[in-house]
């Protein structure tokens, strides 16, 4: 029996008024995949993640999770299966921790209040321990550095045992010296086989963490392959142009 794809996006359309963000984008990912999405700014990379998280309406197409219909258009409306939505987690650019709660309660709020998960606190402490944040359990977000906050945000997303974790430019708001600690946590998750979909501007990190790199532009997937192909030896002219421009800027 062929196992269903973890995530399958089929013929996705999305527009804001006259502006078409996606014009029939299709993409699939397996359980072992760590997908890094690259592309020109304003090309809808973050929007793609927000759609997969169920935060945005779509104009057309459908999304499957584990072969089951997850997001689709029905009767002129976007329908989201909330049971499936609960299996996806997301980490945002600006951490978005709850400022009124301490770190431990930032982690336990969702599991305790929405799912009644027992021993959430022990699990939270274990996660904080794993990310080197155990000492901060009773601190408030405002007392943490950007890097620490983002690691807490990742831990918070992990509390719900997601089958797929989305990372939306999670290091873009960080000072350069804090980027490494967040990337290290993500690498550790990768080593544990966590399926991830990542939007980042850091090509070096993309190369390190990705099992596949997807170049999206003009509302569709232009090229999709292992990082050695898409980043070092692109097959499509448009990808090559983009990658060369990005690396030229770096030098």
């Amino acid at each position: 029996m062929v196992q269903d794809k973890l995530l399958k996006i089929h013929n996705l359309h999305k527009s804001y008024g006259d502006l078409d963000i996606f014009k029939g984008l299709s993409l699939a990912m397996d359980r072992g995949d760590r997908l890094v999405i690259i592309g020109p700014s304003g090309g809808g990379k973050s929007t793609l993640l927000r759609i997969v998280m169920g935060l945005e309406d779509i104009t057309g197409g459908d999304v499957y999770l584990d072969g089951k219909p997850y997001i689709l258009r029905d009767g002129g409306k976007t329908k989201i299966d909330h049971k499936l939505q609960a299996r996806v987690g997301m980490v945002f650019q600006h951490y978005t921790l709850f400022p009124h709660l301490d770190i431990l309660r930032n982690l336990t709020l969702a599991p305790v209040k929405t799912r009644g998960i027992p021993r959430a606190e022990a699990k939270a402490m274990a996660l904080l321990e794993r990310f080197g944040l155990a000492a901060k359990a009773r601190a408030y977000p405002s007392q943490l550095s950007g890097g620490q906050k983002q690691r807490v945000a990742i831990a918070r997303a992990l509390m719900l045992d997601p089958d797929l974790l989305l990372f939306d430019e999670v290091t873009s708001a960080l000072d350069p010296e804090l980027v490494a600690e967040v990337e290290a946590v993500m690498m550790e998750l990768a080593d544990h086989g966590m399926p991830m979909m990542i939007v980042t501007h850091d090509m070096h990190f993309a190369r390190n963490i990705a099992s596949r790199v997807v170049f999206a532009a003009g509302g569709v997937v232009v090229e999709d392959g292992p990082p050695e192909q898409v980043l070092d030896n692109p097959q499509v002219a448009r990808t090559r142009e983009f990658v060369e421009r990005v690396f030229a800027r770096k030098k």
């Binding site: 927000r50 998280m53 169920g54 935060l55 909330h82 939505q85 609960a86 996806v88 987690g89 997301m90 945002f92 600006h94 978005t96 709850f98 709020l109 969702a110 209040k113 929405t114 799912r115 918070r156 997303a157 719900l160």
Partner: peptide, 15 residues
């Protein structure tokens, strides 16, 4: 963003 985060964590409605 607080509202987005809550939706991502499944915290909705009255909660």
């Amino acid at each position: 963003e607080q509202y987005d985060t809550c939706r991502a964590l499944g915290i909705t409605g009255l909660r």
